[in-house]
Design a protein around this nucleic acid. Structure first.
Length: 262
DNA sequence: ATGACTGTTATAAACAGA
């Protein structure tokens, strides 16, 4: 079988339900993972998505903040949902396909402005969340698994518009990059996007604050698709749908795609 | 170096995003 998967920080699934439908119609991924739904699960407008063939949904939500959901054309059952740093946040959901492949959908905390846990509690929570992820994957090594989401870290120099200028900016600091590398090592994860696109600048997020995001192009690659080694070689066709950042009233993130032939 | 924007809601002289 073959399926295409996309991950997208939607920044309100209710406000942007129309954009979700546009993506479902025009790009038609078999599986769509969303973050920052900012909605309780019961208020997600899933009927509109069902009508487009996405009959299965697994989700966690809360009022106003966070929230993750997976919409699937393929039968999917809920596998897991963890509150990784015990913050009472809806930042993880996992679903399983009938072929046994597990899909983890993550929304890692942004971490606030100051990259110092003594001055900024949120930065510490971000690091702790990543440490919990690492320890969990070490304790129970994942198999036949895909991990996607807004990890809120751009790990490589060519994942940001200016490496030197962003070294002290949350999302690209060395301690965050090190924590993310440990999560990756903990589960033996492969960065599928960079396996497919090994060279060159690549972004999935552009700030709302730029006057002209496209011209300035001060982006960061915060959204990721990983897979375990037993299925990573089945992945191909990775891409970022940059066009979606220019849609009307857009999310500040663009969807990231990968296809798996299994 | 600063400030620029957007969403939800305790509709703000707030908070979070990153």
């Amino acid at each position: 079988m073959s399926f295409t998967l996309a991950t997208w920080n939607i920044n309100s699934v209710r406000l942007r339900a129309g954009l979700v439908e546009k993506l479902m119609r025009e790009e038609a991924p078999d599986i769509l993972c969303l973050q920052e739904c900012k909605s309780p699960v019961e208020k997600i407008p899933r009927e509109a998505f069902e009508a487009l063939g996405y009959r299965w949904m697994v989700a966690r939500g809360q009022k106003g903040y966070n929230g993750v959901a997976i919409f699937s054309k393929l039968p999917m059952q809920e596998a897991r949902a963890e509150d990784w740093a015990q913050m009472g946040h809806a930042r993880h959901i996992a679903g399983q396909l009938e072929n046994g492949v597990t899909i983890h959908n993550f929304y890692v905390p942004a971490g606030g402005d100051i990259p110092d846990r003594e001055q900024n509690e949120k930065f510490g929570q971000k690091l702790d969340f990543l440490t919990h992820m690492r320890d969990d994957f070490r304790a129970a090594p994942p198999e036949k698994s895909i991990l996607v989401g807004d990890l809120n870290i751009a790990p490589r120099e060519d994942d940001v518009w200016n490496h030197k200028q962003l070294l002290k900016i949350v999302s690209h600091t060395p301690i965050e990059v090190d924590h993310l590398a440990q999560v990756m090592e903990g589960g033996d994860w492969v960065d599928v996007t960079r396996k497919d696109i090994p060279e060159g600048l690549l972004y999935s997020w552009w700030s709302y604050r730029a006057k002209d995001w496209d011209a300035a192009d001060k982006g960061r690659r915060l959204d990721h698709v990983w897979a375990t080694p037993d299925i990573a070689n089945a992945a191909h066709g990775s891409r970022v749908l940059r066009d979606a950042r220019g849609w009307e009233q857009p999310s500040d993130h663009a969807p990231v795609f990968a296809t798996f032939d299994l």
